[in-house]
Design a protein around this nucleic acid. Structure first.
Lengths: 252, 252
DNA sequence: ACGATACATGCAGAAACGTGCAAGAACAGG
DNA sequence: CCTGTTCTTGCACGTTTCTGCATGTATCGT
C-alpha cells in the first residue's frame, strides 16, 4: 500500500466514521501503529484532521471550513469582492456562487443597493437577509456538504429558469492550460449551469488560486468575460492569461 | 471511545439537553464516574461548561462562546425542540419549517443522526452543514425577507417533488377556534404545501403562542398529527384543544 | 445531625506517544 | 549496472497520558 493511498484511506475513514483510532487502523491495514501515527501527525500539520490521544478527529466543520478558509487570504478576498461588487448595477440581476469569496461580495455590496441576487448557497442567502432592498432567489436541490451549496440535477434544473446580467464564480484553480477548475465534478457542472444563465460571467480568484489546478474543469477561457484577482499583473501566469485575451480586472 | 470524542459527546449533550448528570453519562458510556468528572473539570477550566454538584450546566449566556451559544434559545423553545428532535427516527426524512424554533430543533438533533432534512429556509440549511450524517435538501424560490424562507409559486412547486415521514411547522398563533395561524399569506400557503408532503405533521408552539391568533389560517386541527408545546396541560386553551382530539405532546 | 452521595487526590497498571536507530526500498547519477 | 543518497518503515526504549480504584473530605437532603 502506497503512503499517499494510506493517507487517502485515513481521510476517507475520517469523513465516513467521524473518527480514527490509530490502533484499529493499524490492525486493519496490517501496518504498525507508528506509521499511522506519523500519517496522522502529517495530516494534522496540514490542518486536515485534529490529532487526539488515541487517534484523530475531523477538524470541526464550523471552525475549519469557515475560520481556516477565511483566514487563508482575507485581505485578497476582500479586495476581489470589492471590485466585483462595483460591477453590480442598481436594479440588475446577479448570480452568485457559493464560497467565502462570494460571501465577501455580499458584505461588499452596498446595503441599500436594489438588485436581484440568485444563488444556490444557503449561506449566501442567509447573509443577504440583512440587505433590505436586495431581492433573493434561492436555487434548491441537494446540498453538498463539502462546499455547502445546492448541486445535482434538481439544482441545475432550477437554474434553467433564471437569467441574470452578471454571474460571479469562485473556483479553486486558475491555470493557463487547465483553465478554471474545481475539486468536485457536481460543483463544476453547477457552476457551468450558472454561468450559462448570465450575460457576463466573471471569475473571482484571489492570488493563491493563480497558477494552480484542481481535478475538474469548470469552463474554458473563452466562455468567461473576465477574471477578477489581486494577483500581481506581472505574474507570469497572469501575463499569459492576458496574452490569451482574458480580461483581467485588478483588485488592489 | 476516544477521550476527545467523549468530550465532544459531553458538549453535544450539554447543548441538546441543557445539563449533564455525571452518574448517568458514566453509565451510558460505560466508563467510571471519575473520568466523567475529570472531563467536566477540564471543560469547565476552558470555560466550556459550568461545573455543578452532580454534573454540569451550560455556561451562562452572557459569557457563552460560540459553542454554548447554540443553547441560548429561550428555554421554552429548547424544550419543545428537544421533544421534536426525539421524534426523528434514524434514516427518516423530515420536513423542517423556518423560524427560531425550527433552528432550535436543528441544534437539538444529535450531530451524528443519519436522516434527511428538507427545508425551505437557508438559515436552517446552513445550520445543518455541521451535521455530518444529515442529508440536506433545499427547497428553492423567492426568499421572503420577513421570515427568511423561500415562498411563492416556485417554492410550493419544489415542495411537490418531495415526501417525508415527519413535518415540523412553526406558527405564530395557536387558537382553539382560529386554528393554526401565521402573519403572512404566502407563508401560510407554503406551510400548507409542506404539511401535505409529510405523513405526520407536528406543530411546534412554545407557550407564548398558545391562545393567540394571527391573520392567516395555516391548517385546521384535523390536518395535524399533534402539537408540541411547553405550556401547562391545565391551561384552558390546551385543555380545550385536547378535548377536540388534538394530541398534545408536553415538553418539559 | 447524620447518612448518602459527590468530590479531590494519590497511586498503579495500561496504553499511547515521541525519538533514535537500523534495515530495506526507491531513485538519481555516473 | 553499480553506487551513493534519500525516504520510508518497523522496532526498541524511555516518557507521558489516561483510567479506574482506594482513601479521605466536602456537600447535599432529610
Amino acid at each position: 500500500m502506497l503512503a499517499a493511498e494510506r493517507r487517502e484511506h485515513l481521510l476517507d475513514l475520517l469523513a465516513r466514521e467521524g473518527k480514527i483510532v490509530a490502533k484499529d487502523v493499524a490492525a486493519e491495514l496490517g501496518i504498525s501503529e507508528d506509521s499511522v501515527r506519523r500519517d496522522l501527525r502529517d495530516l494534522a500539520s496540514e490542518g486536515l484532521c485534529q490529532r487526539v490521544y488515541g487517534g484523530a478527529l475531523p477538524v470541526s466543520p464550523a471552525v475549519a471550513n469557515y475560520r481556516a478558509r477565511q483566514s487563508v487570504a482575507p485581505d485578497g478576498k476582500r479586495k476581489v469582492a470589492a471590485v466585483a461588487a462595483g460591477l453590480v448595477r442598481p436594479g440588475g440581476a446577479l448570480i452568485l456562487d457559493g464560497g467565502t469569496t462570494a460571501l465577501a461580495v455580499v458584505h461588499a455590496l452596498p446595503r441599500d443597493l436594489p438588485c436581484t441576487v440568485i444563488t444556490h448557497s444557503p449561506t449566501i442567502a442567509a447573509a443577504l437577509i440583512d440587505h433590505a432592498s436586495a431581492e433573493i432567489y434561492l436555487l434548491g436541490g441537494r446540498i453538498f456538504k463539502h462546499s455547502a451549496v445546492a448541486c445535482g440535477a434538481a439544482a441545475v434544473e432550477a437554474a434553467q429558469n433564471v437569467s441574470a446580467d452578471l454571474c460571479f464564480l469562485g473556483v479553486t484553480g486558475v491555470h493557463p492550460d487547465a483553465g478554471l477548475t474545481t475539486g468536485d465534478a457536481e460543483e463544476a457542472a453547477m457552476k457551468r449551469a450558472l454561468a450559462a444563465r448570465a450575460a457576463d460571467t466573471y471569475v473571482l480568484a484571489s492570488s493563491e488560486k493563480i497558477g494552480t489546478a484542481s481535478r475538474f474543469r469548470v469552463l474554458p477561457w473563452e466562455e468567461i468575460s473576465g477574471l477578477i484577482t489581486d494577483a500581481d499583473p506581472h505574474d507570469p501566469v497572469i501575463e499569459e492569461l492576458a496574452g490569451r485575451g482574458v480580461e483581467v480586472l485588478r483588485a488592489r
